[in-house]
Simulated scan of single mutants.
Amino acid sequence: MEKTINIIKYSGEVEAFNIEKLKRSLRHSKASEQLVTEIAEEIQAQLTEGITTKRIYEMAYGMLKRKSKSGSARYKLKKAIMELGPTGYPFERFVGKILEYEGFKTNVGVVMQGHCVTHEVDVTALKAEEHYLVECKFHNHQGRNCNVKTPLYVQSRFRDLETQWLKNQHHSLKFHKGWLYTNTRFSADAIQFGECAGLGMVSWDYPEQNSLKSKINLLRLYPITALPSLSKQDKQKILNNDIVLCKEICDNPKLLDDLGISTSKRKRILKEANELCNH
């Protein structure tokens, strides 16, 4: 019988290591089943009592990076989104791009007059008669979730803006809805309130079939920060030029030309981006 090894999660909680759980997370990389098994078994053989999930992730990412660049980029997706920080603005642009590829006309950072006060809305999205107001809640640390206070606040803002819009006859013909996007998770009471109040809510893993993770993988809208070849400095240069998606570079490689990145590195970046966009 194999000895149980206890590991420490980001939250500080202790649990027994489960190789099947590690394999499930590795499968998100789209690596072959053989490679998934090889990496999981190699990590299991190196475990020590009290090792952190952060260290296990680093080991898995390093092994994947050596054997599959695009696989390592998909594996680090959650962390890559956190690297869009430290401010929330790149995440707002990222959410705006997702909605754009879903067929919406979007604007980021819009000041709008409500019935009571003025609001700055992170993203406005319009498609036919659907008019959405989107608040983006960005966290750049693991383990920080959205509790019920956030959807309460977002719904209150939405109602103030909706009251003002409905004074306009043209707006009264549209379907208005408030949405909340986060890159982490919602607490149970946050989800309960959102469902009861009719607030649209999208987190890393909610709703199950249309979560942030699902949307990114379905549309192949991977953040630029997922690319293994980019240094922290390179990522910041690109984000400072309002480029947040690998797909933006795939569609227009010339975007990299004026960023002071060497020709050989640009080629590697493009290769990795195309592998992700066209997998």
Score class of each variant (00 low, 15 high):
Lys67His: 09
Ile56His: 04
Gly114Ala: 08
Leu99Gly: 01
Asn168Ala: 04
Arg159Asn: 07
Glu102Gly: 09
Glu42Phe: 02
Gly103Tyr: 00
Leu152Gln: 11
Pro151Cys: 07
Met59Thr: 02
Tyr153Ala: 15
Thr118Ser: 15
Leu161Phe: 00
Glu33Gln: 13
Thr37His: 14
Tyr61Ser: 06
Cys136Tyr: 00
Gln142Gly: 11
Lys76Pro: 03
His115Ser: 13
Pro86Gln: 09
Thr118Arg: 15
Gln113Lys: 15
Val123Trp: 05
Met63Lys: 13
Asn140Arg: 12
Lys137Thr: 08
Gly103Ser: 03
Leu166Phe: 07
Ser72Ala: 15
Val148Lys: 11
Thr150Ile: 13
His119Val: 03
Gln34Ala: 15
Ala45Arg: 13
Leu84Pro: 07
Glu58Leu: 10
Lys127Gln: 06
Glu130Cys: 05
Phe104Ser: 10
Tyr132Val: 08
Glu92Met: 05
Ser72His: 11
Gly71Pro: 00
Lys54Trp: 01
Gly62Leu: 09
Phe94Lys: 02
Tyr61Cys: 04
Val110Pro: 08
Ile43Asn: 07
His139Ala: 09
Leu161Val: 02
Leu64His: 04
Thr150Gln: 14
Gln113Trp: 14
Ile98Gln: 00
Glu92Asn: 06
Pro151His: 09
Lys137Pro: 02
His119Ile: 05
Asn168Arg: 10
Leu99Lys: 11
Glu33Thr: 07
Trp165Ser: 08
Cys136Phe: 00
Ser70Val: 13
Val110Leu: 15
Val121Tyr: 08
His171Ser: 14
His131Asn: 12
Leu77Pro: 00
Tyr89Asn: 15
Lys65Glu: 09
Val148Glu: 09
Asp122Trp: 01
Gln44Ala: 15
Trp165Thr: 02
Leu166Ile: 04
Lys78Cys: 01
Met59Ser: 03
Lys79Trp: 09
Ser68Met: 12
Thr52Pro: 12
Gly96His: 03
Thr163Lys: 12
Arg93Ile: 05
Thr106Gln: 11
Glu58Lys: 10
His171Gly: 10
Glu38Gly: 07
Thr150Gly: 08
Ser32Val: 00
Val111Tyr: 03
Val117Gln: 11
Gly62Phe: 03
Ile51Asp: 01
Glu42Met: 08
Ala45Lys: 12
Tyr75Gln: 12
His171Arg: 14
Val36Tyr: 01
Gly50Val: 11
Gln113Ala: 14
Ile81Val: 14
Leu84Gly: 07
